[in-house]
């Protein structure tokens, strides 16, 4: 089935948000706000108001990484210390907790950070090809509203874009 990608470029952010807002309120039947991808030069926390809270699983990666860091860090240190014959002499603790707390703490942060970065790379779909509709103007000062549509909705969307003073409309058909 053919999928149509339509992207409207706006220089006025308010118009772009109004467009998304219109889509949200089902001005065009059969097009939902979930089909919208916003390409923006800056981060808009307020966009979640219109796009809806799409959530991010990155903190789960962080939590996993941090817990793994604690467990691995402590077990690694403790097993190293317990098998290192020379070290625990003279009646001192085999696994010294004060120093292990310091080191485990560092391992927590190290693995937490690495897991967070991995989670980010995966969830942000980085290290993939850019979408063919990507416009270099997005990195400058324009905002793009991209929709994934059925054929019948392409024209109404273009109309909607035009109503909101779109600067440029780009299209792409994929098989």
């Amino acid at each position: 089935m053919k999928r149509y990608y339509v992207m409207g470029m706006f220089s006025n952010f308010e118009e772009a948000f109004a467009t998304v807002s219109d889509i949200r309120s089902h001005v065009i039947p059969g097009v939902s706000v979930d089909d919208v991808t916003l390409k923006s030069p800056i981060e808009h926390p307020e966009i979640e108001e219109v796009l809806g809270d799409r959530g991010s699983p990155v903190p789960k990666f962080t939590l996993f990484g941090a817990i793994f860091g604690i467990c691995f860090g402590f077990l690694f240190l403790a097993s190293a210390q317990a098998t290192f014959l020379v070290q625990p002499q003279g009646g001192k603790a085999v696994v010294p907790l004060p120093s292990n707390i310091v080191l485990t703490y560092e391992m927590l942060i190290l693995f937490g950070v690495i897991a967070t970065v991995i989670g980010f790379l995966i969830n942000a779909r980085l290290m993939t090809r850019r979408h063919p509709l990507y416009s270099e103007k997005v990195s400058l000062d324009q905002i793009g509203v991209m929709l994934e549509l059925d054929e019948k909705n392409v024209d109404p969307i273009k109309e909607l874009f035009k109503k909101h003073k779109v600067l440029e409309i780009r299209e792409e058909v994929s098989q």
């Binding site: 916003l38 390409k39 981060e43 808009h44 796009l51 959530g55 990155v58 850019r130 990507y134």
Partner: peptide
């Protein structure tokens, strides 16, 4: 491959 998607910005 950054393209300024809302998904990317959110993450």
């Amino acid at each position: 491959g950054w393209q300024g998607d809302d998904r990317q910005w959110r993450n």
